[in-house]
Write a protein that binds this DNA or RNA. Structure first.
Length: 960
RNA sequence: GCAGAGGUCGCCGAGCCAGGUCAAAGGCGUAGGCUUCAGGAGCCUAUCCCGUAGGGGUUCGUGGGUUCGAAUCCCACCCUCUGCACCA
């Protein structure tokens, strides 16, 4: 292909041959361990991975140039279910899927056939991934690579979990999951045909009594409303059952009975009957023992929860509407033998006081919204709105027993607990919306028992995790709040499952440690895997005691050497290497990993390592979009790392990605942008070669000083931003702002023959090297440098080259041009002659004395005048001074303090000569004759008498 | 719903934490000009509105408020994106 490709591959080869990214402990140098979460290998690396990883690489390269001993290792995640699922689809001949593999992933036909073996598939993508990562120029030490099904890695995970269990962080319990009865496995979001995002909801069942030995467990999310119950709703047409549930007599819908069987209940159905059988009977409130009637409610869905619903018309719009219906159309009751008068007597019972509503909020909201009946879709809206309002702001009234006076939000949990304790309540799970498995079977909720959990609910563990967050850097810092929120919110996490690849639980029977749980502290494994590989250490040698020694320093290496067969030296090296590199200094990922992986990583470090080995910094970035849309293989907008590099080259791909966004904003990948950047690098290449070729003059005058001074500013800016992982800003300055500096210099000077320009170029290349390493190596070498720019010293600000005067002079010139252009725009003159008049001596001295005061603080006109009046040299001019001072004050007030301070520091003497030195430039710029005069020059051309308007730093202008 | 992040001049995006330097950086796009055999690229100029002198007017999701002064601080509201669990 192109020259670009040749250059890039040439340097990649050179880096590899010189092994410059292989990092070993070096006590002389400060270490820097940067990491990227290993990608899951059921597909190729894509530009989303590339974005995050390029941020890591840019930081790594920056730190390497700063003299750090930088280690960037990389590995592959093979744990879990999807690899198996993918390979199964290939085996089954799923055409749609195979086409994606062929067309999107670019898998050759011969390989595709072998994908029936999931491990082969993983290995294929791993090999592809490694070559893509190399081809984009990531500075990785590959000697430490592994995948998560390697026996040696699994020994490490066993060690980790044995310790977690010992420390009490692993617990056992039950958990509700969405379950496919046919597959007999949990149905995750990816495995669903219908119902993405649906999760089990827990209903409280209020155990109303039908008679002494029979309960009607009514399902609700608002158990506090038990104090406002007025009746029960039963669907007369639905099938209900009388069943023995855990030894008690329950009446529930037939569907509910089936559901409860999967929720750790023994259910024995005694008889099935129509709901109408219950209508007209009465039931008892378990708290108050008061009796209420059972009424027909056709809206009751037997498929939802228990199929038994109690009615609170004061606070539930549906209940009110249904009751009103019956009261207004009593004829429907006739069939049921219900006392119509009794139904008409039913009055809502209010139990929650909420601002903005009176006695019966449900009645009011129904009237306000003009909802006619229970079939009105807005009844749902009203229910949600009222529930929200009452939950947050509602206060329980006097009739609510011991909960009176509290808000609903405050007492909800205690109330449920209390009710359960006295046997008045139970609970069940159900799905708010239907879920259908990929296999087309409708799903239910199942409570899994004997699950293993990581107990993220443990308050002491949460506390430790927060301490870890408090002592680390987070880029951007806005994400810190999020981490804290996630730590608070996380609860028990099921850490093992029964299918998929992974490490078996050391104590488990058939349990495999799940993917998000086997990837929390593996960054420490990188520090020793180099030795494991180099010395061919067998997994059986990697015992619990060996890891205890390496990571905790426990035991003697001599004894351990005997039992393990690993030499004493190697053991010592492993221990030393761990101590040298750990903890990791930076880990970067997209923000989707904040609520899981990254926070788990923090938790596990807090659990297993002392504070000195807790993470130093975490970087979080946005999720990559493709041409403004989310990237999906199925949407056909999937861009792989390999393809991007092939098409645009490594440097352009890297920079186009980094320029997309920083912080937590989502970057957008646009092919057009990448092509633009590629073009820019071509121009840069030519520009740089031109500079190198021409550099010969020793001139070091004003403009050279200006350029070098400007470069000092750029060095400071790029460095500061990179330190905070602001890769976009840093690159924007390193590429575009610096380029503009060179443009300005070239325009002003007309050529680039000074050696100073090459000096500046060498700074530029180094500032750009972390982002676009290949072209920078190429140009660095073209500039006659023998070393790699990848290892060159990061430029440091040289205070001796900061030249405020030179910069302020150029500022004066740009201001002057801007003012002139403004006048031209306003007057629409095509100028033939432009005249400038610079301020005279006394103006300069007044200006300076005001400037000095302005730097101190506020300046008052009268005070200035008083002081100036003392100056005898000004006395004859006091009238002019008096009109001049306010003008200066106005001009200065527009300047930032920093600029004022700079101006006060330098003496822009000889304003006139300076402008004269730029006459050629100005004439070309305006395509007109340009002249400069002192404002009092006798010989000046000044037909409109504008010269007197001159202010220091702002010459008067006349144009014709 | 809960949590986190956002809404800026055609687009992408700085600025907001530390209020005045902000009609608001930079890139892209668009228009005009220069250069070039041509294509491309490069360079220059313009790009909210008005203005025959360096000025003025109206803008930073919407509506209020604080302040001499707000894109920036406070309150309310609207909208967008991301995550929400056994799944990588």
């Amino acid at each position: 292909m192109s020259q670009t490709k040749q250059i890039e591959e040439k340097w990649q080869k050179k880096w590899e041959n010189a092994r410059i990214f292989e990092a070993d402990p070096d006590p002389q140098k400060k270490k820097m361990l940067v990491t990227f979460p290993y990608p899951y290998m059921n597909g190729p690396l894509h530009v989303g991975h590339t974005f995050t990883a390029t941020r890591v690489d840019a930081y790594a390269r920056f730190k390497r140039m700063q003299g750090y001993n930088v280690l960037w290792p990389w590995s592959w995640h093979w744990t879990g279910q999807p690899l198996l699922g993918a390979s199964e689809r290939v085996a089954k001949g799923d055409e749609a899927y195979i086409r994606v593999l062929r067309e999107v992933d670019g898998v050759p036909e011969a390989e595709l056939k072998k994908f029936v073996d999931p491990l082969y598939m993983a290995q294929y993508y791993t090999n592809e991934g490694r070559s893509a990562a190399t081809r984009i120029g990531f500075s990785i030490d590959w000697r430490r690579e592994f995948n998560t099904v390697m026996p040696t890695y699994q020994k490490f995970i066993e060690w980790q979990y044995t310790h977690l269990k010992e420390k009490g962080y692993v617990t056992r319990g039950t958990h509700p999951v969405v379950w496919c009865p046919k597959d007999k496995s949990p149905t995750g979001d990816h495995d669903r045909q219908v119902g993405e995002g649906v999760t089990p909801e827990e209903y409280t069942l209020i155990k109303y009594k039908l008679d002494e030995k029979t309960y009607l467990p009514a399902a609700t999310f608002r158990p506090e409303t038990i104090y406002g119950v007025t009746n029960m709703w039963i669907n007369p047409e639905a099938a209900y059952v009388e069943a023995k549930v855990n030894g008690e007599n329950w009446i529930i819908s037939q569907e509910a009975a089936e559901k409860l069987k999967e929720q750790e209940r023994t259910v024995e159905v005694k008889r099935v009957f129509k709901g109408r059988e219950l209508i007209g009977k009465s039931f008892e409130n378990p708290l108050t023992k008061a009796k209420f009637p059972i009424l027909p409610g056709w809206f009751v869905d037997p498929k939802q929860a228990s199929g038994v619903v109690y009615s609170v018309p004061a606070h539930a719009p549906y209940d009110w509407l249904a009751l009103k219906d019956l009261q207004e159309k009593p004829e429907v009751l006739k069939d049921f033998g219900v006392d119509v008068e009794m139904v008409k007597q039913i009055k809502p019972i209010s139990l929650i006081a909420v601002e903005g509503f009176g006695e019966y909020p449900a009645v009011e909201i129904v009237e306000q919204m003009g909802i006619k009946d229970q079939h009105d879709p807005r009844a749902d809206e009203a229910t949600k709105a009222l529930y929200k309002k009452e939950f947050h702001a509602g206060v329980l009234k006097q009739n609510c027993g011991r909960y009176a006076g509290k808000t609903v939000r405050e007492v909800k949990d205690t109330l449920i607990r209390d009710f359960r304790e006295i046997g008045a309540a139970d609970s069940m799970y159900d799905l708010p919306d239907p879920v259908v498995c990929r296999c087309m079977t409708p799903c239910i909720v199942k409570i899994l028992s004997d699950q293993w959990f990581l107990n993220y609910s443990d308050p002491a563990w949460k506390e430790k995790a927060k301490e870890a967050v408090a002592q680390m850097q987070i880029y951007p810092d806005a994400a810190r709040q999020w981490f804290i929120a996630v730590i608070d919110w996380l609860k028990e996490w099921a850490c093992a499952r029964t299918t998929g690849f992974g490490t078996p639980l050391p104590w488990g029977k058939g349990w495999i440690i799940e993917t998000l749980s086997d990837s929390t502290i593996y960054m420490s494994f990188y520090t020793i895997n180099k030795h494991i590989r180099q010395h061919g250490i067998k997994p059986e040698s990697l015992t619990h005691e060996i890891f205890d020694y390496v990571f905790y320093g426990k035991g003697s290496e001599v004894a351990l050497s005997k039992t393990s067969g690993i030499s004493v030296e190697v053991l010592r090296d492993m221990r030393a290497e761990f101590l040298y590199w750990y903890p990791f200094d930076l880990r970067v990922s997209a923000k989707e990993l904040v609520p899981n992986h990254l926070t788990f990583c923090i938790f596990h470090h807090a659990a297993l390592f002392p504070p000195e080995q807790w993470p130093r910094a975490i970087g979080v970035n946005g999720m990559l979009m493709i041409e403004g849309k989310q990237m999906h293989k199925s949407k056909g907008n999937f861009v792989t790392m390999k393809n991007a590099v092939e098409r645009y080259g490594a440097d352009a791909t890297r920079c186009a990605l980094l320029l997309g966004a920083e912080g937590m904003d989502d970057p957008d990948w646009r092919g057009e942008n990448a092509a633009d950047i590629r073009g820019k690098f071509e121009s840069l290449h030519n520009l740089a070669l031109g500079i190198i070729e021409k550099a010969k003059s020793d001139e070091a005058a004003h403009l050279e000083k200006w350029l070098l001074s400007k470069m000092q500013q750029r060095i400071a800016e790029v460095t500061r931003n990179l330190e905070e992982l602001k890769t976009r800003t840093a690159l924007e300055i390193a590429l575009f702002e610096v380029w503009n500096d060179f443009r300005w210099y070239t325009r002003r000077k007309g050529e680039t023959e000074a050696k100073a320009v090459q000096e500046a170029l060498e700074v530029w290349l180094r500032l750009l090297a972390p982002f676009a390493p290949h072209i920078c190596e190429e140009l660095w070498s073209a500039a006659g440098k023998e070393n790699f720019i990848s290892l060159a010293e990061w430029p440091r600000v040289d205070e001796g080259k900061v030249d405020v005067l030179a910069e302020e002079r150029e500022n004066l010139l740009t201001d002057l041009i801007e003012d002139t252009l403004n006048v031209l725009r306003a007057t629409k003159i095509s100028p033939t002659r432009v005249c400038y008049y610079t301020a005279n001596g006394w103006k300069w001295s007044v200006y300076r004395s005001i400037l000095e005061k302005a730097v101190q603080g506020e300046v008052k006109v009268n005070e200035v005048m008083k002081e100036l009046a003392k100056d005898s040299s000004l006395r004859e001019n006091m009238k002019a001074v008096a009109s001049f001072v306010p003008k200066v004050l106005k001009t200065l007030s527009k300047l930032p303090n920093e600029r004022k301070a700079r101006l006060a520091k330098v003496e822009i003497a000889n304003e006139k000569e300076f402008i004269e030195s730029a006459l050629g430039f100005l004439e070309e710029r305006f395509n007109a004759k340009v002249a400069v005069y002192g404002e009092e020059d006798q010989a000046r051309f000044d037909p409109k008498r504008r010269a007197a308007l001159a202010v220091p730093g702002q010459p008067a202008i006349y144009i014709e």
